[in-house]
Design a protein around this nucleic acid. Sequence first.
DNA 1: CTGAAAGCGCTTACAG
DNA 2: CTGAAAGCGCTTACAG
Lengths: 334, 334
Amino acid sequence: MTKRADKPITLADVARRAGTSTAVVSYVINDGPRPVAAATRERVLAAAAELGYRPNRIARALRSRTTGVVGLVLADASNPYFAALARHVEQALERRERLTLIGNAGYSADRQRDLVDRFLAAQVDGLVIVSAEGGDDVTDLAQAAGVPAVYVHHGPSDGRARVVGADNHDAVREAVAHLRGHGHRHIAFLGGPHDAGPVADRRTAWRAAVADDPWAALLRCDYSRAAAHSLTRRLAAGDALPRALITATDEQAIGVLSGAWASGVAVPGRLAVISLDGTPESAHTAPALTVTRQPLEAMAEQAVELLSGRDPGAPAAHAPLVIRRSCGCDGDQD
Amino acid sequence: MTKRADKPITLADVARRAGTSTAVVSYVINDGPRPVAAATRERVLAAAAELGYRPNRIARALRSRTTGVVGLVLADASNPYFAALARHVEQALERRERLTLIGNAGYSADRQRDLVDRFLAAQVDGLVIVSAEGGDDVTDLAQAAGVPAVYVHHGPSDGRARVVGADNHDAVREAVAHLRGHGHRHIAFLGGPHDAGPVADRRTAWRAAVADDPWAALLRCDYSRAAAHSLTRRLAAGDALPRALITATDEQAIGVLSGAWASGVAVPGRLAVISLDGTPESAHTAPALTVTRQPLEAMAEQAVELLSGRDPGAPAAHAPLVIRRSCGCDGDQD
DNA sequence: CTGAAAGCGCTTACAG
DNA sequence: CTGAAAGCGCTTACAG
């Protein structure tokens, strides 16, 4: 036998049983904003407990105009990098007792705008946009609704929007230096189709680090395993594979690895690889990827802090080099 | 210059401008439940458009007791299988114009229960629980709140709860037959630490399919890449690796692949592998995994249908065999 | 410290 | 077909 929900308990029920007013019950439930005598508080608490009272958040939201819900819009949840970022944002929000509404834009500016619209209609207290190239600028929508918004990873660069990212320059510098330490003279870079945002930063940093090498090759392909896989196979077939490669993203690195396998190209023997994301997936590829690990948790925290109006002040977090096997190191792997 | 949100437009504003009552405005906005004269409807629509009216969903929810929001609780969002399932559930919900609240239980029964509590307080219209072993039975909570709940992948087996899964038996039978076709006599199975639910079904189906082989080995390890990685290394070191292996999950299969790589074991040459999840990740491992692909989209659709009270009636969907390289086939891979 | 009451923005009987 | 009004369950001035 389970209890039925015929009549949810309301504040008024509790007030009645405690012999007081709804105002007082509200004060004790919310610990304010007015003080309540200790004895009264006890009676209220007891009544609430006996009745099994659960505040109706919808009613509270209507009245107080704050829902405790934040909208999280993702460029693409099937990309493990974005998925991991999303998880950290959700956790950061959870720690602050906020609920998170999630939505997938699938790289479509229209869908992103739609999602934001719907989240705004649901009266979210804030918006976290984990965006990518092609994402829409929704700053105007959020602003019109008076809702704070922050972009993570990639955002409009006109300075109107708050966007949090990691320090890509140092990371790329370290990656290049590490590959050089393995004796590589020419270090190629695999970027996006026409990169912007963080990937463009990474490419720029790479170019600066290899400025002395006129043969450093810039490769490009979509941010997908499939695209990097076929690029690698094509390059291998034409004997045009570099000996050392930095990939802009893990997805591309994984595609490179599987393409190399399919072409019989040994990694790291024939082709050394370092990837610049460092998602959890990168630890268990074959071989395990050496990466610069994006500080996803720090980024999520920063984003959520910014949402609360607090300026975390901290600069972009550092992405440390995590040495595994794909670079040529002989890391202990279990 | 962006518009400020000093005073959101309300139904009453629209009614005033259209020279009618709030009731009528509500009827046209919601297309019911009462008819409205065409001329009036036009005026209302025009007024709403001119004012840029957006219904306040919170107010609507308070009054109508339905929020249009569904809570999705995940056993573990860092597991790509659950993540993919989550994505499909979110999309199925989106197609029905529902918003999805997301939360991560991290395999903790307590946290799962907590999450459900908070979702219920937010007045969700329904609950989708993507659960795993160790998940809590929250049927009582949901029932007490009068909110429909459905489990996906794994749920309580007492029959009180609705749980949707795939047909694991056929999938496993096909996998075994395929490996036999490659000439393997002994086909091992890698299960969970003490499997229950779907993995137990898969193990049972495997056992039945290899009933004629007294040497078929049952291996066990955690559902993580790391665990499968070290198991594989250990087995390789002790020369105790099977020649053909079916893994219960992709995570384990990926760990096996990376462990095999680290041990210098050739896949599929020395060790053939088929995995039983078939998440997107499985397509770009090195080598690419042959899998039985769980019908995630169908499962998500079924779950969401069940939530609406409709009984989809369809039996558990079939998980087709997707042939790639790890089984020993020479599939074309780009 | 406490209570009576207004009001958040909707939906929906109820009367016309 | 339309309007005046109650009410969803809270929070919060306002008076005591």
